[in-house]
């Protein structure tokens, strides 16, 4: 049954993508189609990366409230990017081919996130409240740190960082999109291969280890995959904090499954669906450009509150 729902999701996503491309298509068709395809690609990549990364994070954190966005995964990415510009200079960085630069950023994020969140996951995983607090404070701190470094830097270098930070769905670099898509697909495939082990990890660190799962290694690999996914979405459009929470919760509700072989593709497709549908409605039907992120944050934030309050009552 859950498999059938994933199939329906796939069909809905394909239909929506077709509508996104074909809606009121006028001459010059080839040009407009190219623009739309790039934008659609970015939306799908970001949605899928955010959805899958959130499911992965919630599993290794044994926590349904935290998301990579909330604990500052994307802030860490921006901080690293800022430091990279600071170290190499804006011009030096611009001279690097975008695939090399992206690769460097992913590896740096993977290393930094493993050091930071690996510690958080090992120490506090049992204490949910403390984990949420530590995570959110970490997120705020990383954001503040990135901002501080940006204030220290040369204005022309800052412009480079700013461009990376505030890139929107409006202008997407096709080369970067291609690199992102490849990285994302590889990460998704690797995560799906690990799906049965992730199911065991969801039982909690202690039980999973009792069943002979090398939990520490699994967390390490998962953080690596998440780092790749978060890099993809942050590099393409910048942070959308609550999209992951919205996506993961919807995926769990809709499939009614605990199996990662179901949850991961479902969350990836729901993430893509939300973004493509939102962009379609706001841009094509309402003629407004910037409202999508705001609306996603609003509903995601409301959901976060609802989940926190529900938890209290129980």
């Amino acid at each position: 049954m859950a498999e059938r729902r994933v199939l329906w999701l796939a069909l809905a996503l394909m239909a929506l993508c077709a509508a996104f491309l074909a809606w009121q298509l006028r001459a010059p068709m080839g040009f407009i189609l190219g623009l739309r395809a790039a934008k659609l690609g970015a939306l799908v990549c970001v949605g899928a990366a955010t959805g899958a990364a959130t499911i992965l994070f919630q599993t290794v954190a044994s926590n349904r409230l935290l998301t990579p966005g909330l604990v500052g995964f994307d802030a860490l990415f921006i901080l690293l990017q800022t430091l990279l510009v600071l170290a190499l200079g804006g011009v030096g960085l611009a001279q690097l081919p975008s695939s090399l630069r992206f690769g460097m950023e992913v590896i740096a994020l993977a290393a930094a996130s493993t050091a930071l969140f690996g510690l958080l996951l090992r120490r506090d995983a049992r204490d949910v409240t403390r984990m949420i607090l530590t995570g959110i404070i970490l997120g705020v701190m990383l954001r503040g740190l990135a901002e501080m470094v940006q204030r220290l830097m040369d204005p022309s270098d800052f412009a480079v960082v700013q461009q990376a930070m505030f890139a929107s769905f409006g202008r997407v670099d096709p080369q970067q999109l291609a690199v992102s898509a490849v990285v994302l697909l590889a990460a998704l495939a690797a995560a799906l291969r690990m799906a049965p082990a992730l199911d065991v990890a969801a039982l909690g660190r202690s039980t999973a280890r009792g069943l002979g799962l090398d939990h520490d290694r699994l967390v390490l690999v998962t953080l690596l995959l998440m780092a790749a996914m978060v890099s993809v979405s942050t590099a393409l459009v910048g942070p959308i904090t609550f999209l992951g929470l919205l996506t993961a919760s919807l995926a769990r509700q809709l499939t009614g499954s605990h199996r990662h072989a179901i949850l991961l593709p479902a969350a990836a497709m729901i993430g893509a669906l939300i973004l493509v549908a939102g962009q379609f409605v706001f841009e094509r039907l309402m003629g407004s450009q910037s409202a999508l992120a705001v609306i996603v944050e609003l509903f995601g934030g409301l959901l976060f509150l609802a989940l926190v309050l529900k938890r209290r009552r129980r």
Partner: peptide, 30 residues
């Protein structure tokens, strides 16, 4: 190790929507 010794822990974490049969099935993971 997991094929030599099995441990029932006190108050293990719960996974929502996990069926009893699936939970017992995790015992076969090793």
């Amino acid at each position: 190790r997991a094929r030599t010794v099995a441990l029932l822990q006190q108050s293990p974490a719960l996974v929502s929507r996990l069926k009893v049969r699936e939970l017992v099935g995790f015992g076969r993971w090793p």
